[in-house]
Computed example of a mutant assay.
Amino acid sequence: MTRLGYQIPNFTYPGIAADQLFDTVVAQAREADASGFDTVLVMDHFYQLPILGTPDEPMIEAYTLLSALAQHTSKVRLSALVTGNTYRNPTLLAKTVTALDIVSGGRGQLGIGAGWYELEHDSLGYEFGTFTDRFEKLEEALQIILGMLDGKRPSLDGRRYKVSDALNVPAPLSKIPVMIGGGGEKKTLRMVAQYADESNLICAVEDIGRKLDALAAHCEALGRDRSEITVSLQTSACVAPTHDEAVADFEAYLQRNPAAEVRRAGTVVGDPDEVAARFADLLATGVDGVTVNAPANGHVPGRVGLLGQTLAPLIG
C-alpha cells in the first residue's frame, strides 16, 4: 500500500533535451526506489496542468512510461496518480494495469478517478459530460475492472458500459491495490469505502479530519472495516541539503514557470530537518502516509534520494 509515494508530475526540466528526458525520469525513479519510497507514480494526463505549466509542455503517456520504469526499478510499486477513467474503456484499463503488473514482476497498482480536465477532453475528443456522468462512469468501470483483476468474468449491462464475460488472461501476478483519488465526501469517499484499498486525498490540511470522518461513516454504512483502507495525502516538497539551496531551487522554478506561483503556499520548502518537521505535522492529522511530488527540483541529481531519506523515517 502507498504510504510514501513519489509522484513525477512534470517533464519540463531546464537544460534537458528531448533525447535526455527519459533518462532524467529514470534517475528520479531509481533514487525513489533506493531511498525509502514504496511507490512511484506519474500523472495520467496528455496536457500539462495549469498549476504546473502550459498545455504544450511535455507530457508522457502514463502506462507506457510506468512499464518502462518497471525495467529500471526493483522494489517500488508503480501507479498512475490517478488514471482518468474517461480516457480508456474499463476493459482496456484492466488489461493495461495487468500488463504493468506482469512486466514489473507484481508491482502494478491502479490509481483511478472520475476525470476532471475539461480542456484535455475537448481538445482530444474524449467525452467530458457532466459531473454526474463522470461519476456514474467511474462506478460502472470499477465494477468491471475489479472483476477482471480478481480473475472473474464480469458482465454488465450498465447505462455507461456494456460487457459480457470479460476475460483477463493472463491474470495479474498479485492482488493489485486500487487507489481512488480525490476528496469528495459524498461520492468519491463512498466509492473508496465500497471498492478501494487506498484513498489519496487532495484537500487542505484543515479539511483532513472531516474527510476521514466522512470515509469512516461510509465504511460503517457499508459494513466495511475502515482499518482496511490506507489513506494518503497529496503533497509537494522542495528539499535540499541547506535551507538556502532549497529556497534557491524553488525560486528558480517559479522564475522559469510563473504559472506555478499558486503552488508556493502549498509546497514544503527547506532543508531535511525543516521538511521532516512539516511532514511530521501532516502525518499527525490522521492520514497513514503521503504522496509527494517535487516539480521544482526532482530532476536535480540527489534531490529525490534526499527527500526519501528525509521522509521514510517518519513512516512507521
Rank of each mutant, 00 (worst) to 15 (best):
A17G: 04
A17P: 01
Q20S: 08
V25Q: 00
V26N: 01
A29Y: 10
G36L: 15
G36P: 06
D38Y: 01
T39W: 09
V40G: 03
H45C: 01
F46M: 08
F46Y: 13
Y47N: 06
I51W: 02
G53E: 03
M59E: 09
I60M: 09
E61W: 05
E61N: 03
A62T: 08
Y63H: 12
Y63L: 07
T64Y: 05
L66P: 09
S67W: 06
S67C: 12
A68T: 05
S74W: 07
K75R: 15
S79M: 02
Y87Q: 05
T91S: 13
L93W: 00
L93G: 07
K95Y: 05
A99K: 06
G113S: 12
L119M: 09
D122N: 08
G125A: 05
E127K: 10
G129E: 10
T130I: 10
F131H: 09
L138H: 03
D150Q: 15
D150C: 13
R153C: 13
P154Q: 11
L156P: 08
R159Y: 11
R159F: 12
V163P: 06
D165F: 12
L167D: 13
N168T: 07
P172F: 07
S174T: 10
G184I: 07
K187D: 12
T188Y: 13
V192K: 05
A196E: 04
S199E: 00
S199G: 10
C203Q: 04
C203V: 13
D207W: 04
A214G: 14
L215P: 14
H218L: 03
H218Y: 05
C219E: 15
C219M: 13
D225K: 11
D225A: 02
D225C: 01
S227Q: 14
T230I: 05
H243D: 11
H243V: 03
A246C: 11
V247T: 04
R263H: 00
R264N: 03
D271V: 13
P272D: 01
D273T: 12
L283W: 10
T285N: 14
D288H: 14
G289S: 11
T291G: 13
A294H: 04
H299M: 02
L311Q: 05
P313K: 03
I315S: 07
I315M: 01
